[in-house]
Design a protein around this nucleic acid. Structure first.
Lengths: 214, 214
DNA sequence: ACTAGTTTGAACCAATGAGTTCAGATCGGT
DNA sequence: ACCGATCTGAACTCATTGGTTCAAACTAGT
């Protein structure tokens, strides 16, 4: 589980770089880019200020790398959430519902909310954050889900159709209502409410894309 | 069309206050709260710095008021977009599609994107922006649309069901896919792509909520 | 033309924070 | 125990910026 770019030399205690990136993300998440001061990031990471500048030259590059690391793990979690669609022996509705529920959980997660906020807010000041979005953004989740749906269609468990479109609308049905209800991610949503949202999303998805109508 | 709170006295050229709020919103939209400096806002509004402080005491209250004004007009536009659902004599599918298309257009609008970004980014630093979200947020659009759908159900043009849920999922189907495709509002979406998104959204909405299945 | 309120420009103050410097502490490997 | 590299803490520089002050200019109504 080595980090993408190891510490400048092979030794130097437990990799400070990782601690810095994580602390930076937490502080940026709380304060936003401009409001976050490097000293506070250093404190949060349990490190001195020059050490921060030693590992990451700029505040800007610090931001970029912290963002990228967070985006990667968030995407990985979301992709993992699609797992049950792999070898789904049980009922399709149940599998879809559990996947939807897991996606909703992840969408509510602090890390995920903070990342979304940061990307939204600083995308103007950091045009190259767009690369992060393109590499680890929702687009990737769409594709992965489309793959799964295509397999289901081929296996005859779902009527044939455009899997990309189905994936796109499935995700929209799942997270769209949450976005509106959670008031910018500030209102905590109970587990039972999430469950109910997931079931509702799967219900209309299957009404439109499933073969059990009539 | 008098502003919510008129200038401190009845005279004083054309209301500077309005110009300040609009300029402030433009600058905040470009730079974010912390990065925006009051001098630049003053320049953008064609006004001297002390005048800004004369009308709006703080940078913070300046921000709040600029945000609230923008949120109000954005919500009004969106509510107006539901107009065609009022006395829809023509085909339901066509009406829904045109409404969806209009909503997508508005969602792509610069003002709308900037407002979303600002709310997302500064909601932590300005907890009372939540009042703005609650008063002028997506929740209001949901309610208005639920009203229209309820009328359509009563008129027998749509099968009876939960209008709130239908409204929630309709909006999710419309704007959700856009959100993913537009890469945080940075990629411009062509009119034909919007049209196609609107038609797809209405198609699955009617498959799930309409009475023409079978 | 006079007056009262508003706007302007510019200078000013104080605070904040990015980024650097440096001498001394600390640690890993030998 | 020693060495070379890293980490630390504190102080420092310098630019930015929020907010204020003030005298001069302007504007409207009488």
């Amino acid at each position: 589980m080595t980090p993408a770019r190891p510490s400048t030399t092979s030794h130097g205690r437990i990799d400070k770089r990782q601690a810095i990136l994580e602390g930076a993300f937490r502080v940026f998440a709380r304060q936003g880019y401009a409001q976050a001061c490097v000293q506070e990031i250093a404190n949060e990471a349990g490190v001195a200020k020059p050490t921060v500048y030693n590992h990451l030259t700029d505040k800007a590059t610090l931001f970029r790398h912290a963002l990228e690391a967070a985006a990667r793990t968030v995407l990985e979690e979301r992709l993992a959430a699609l797992g049950p669609l792999q070898g789904s022996a049980e009922g399709l509705r149940e599998t879809l519902t559990s996947v939807a529920y897991r996606l909703l959980q992840l969408h509510c997660d602090d890390r995920s909310c903070a990342l979304r906020r940061l990307l939204y807010s600083e995308i103007n000041k950091f045009p190259d954050s767009l690369d992060i979005v393109r590499q680890y953004g929702p687009h990737r989740l769409n594709e992965a889900l489309a793959d799964r749906l295509a397999r289901l269609m081929l296996a005859g468990r779902l009527p044939t159709g455009d899997p990309a479109r189905a994936a796109e609308q499935f995700i929209a049905l799942v997270v769209g209502p949450l976005e509106a209800r959670s008031e910018m991610g500030t209102r905590p949503i109970s587990g039972s409410e999430l469950r109910e949202l997931a079931e509702a999303a799967v219900r209309t998805f299957l009404l439109a894309f499933g073969d059990q109508h009539v």
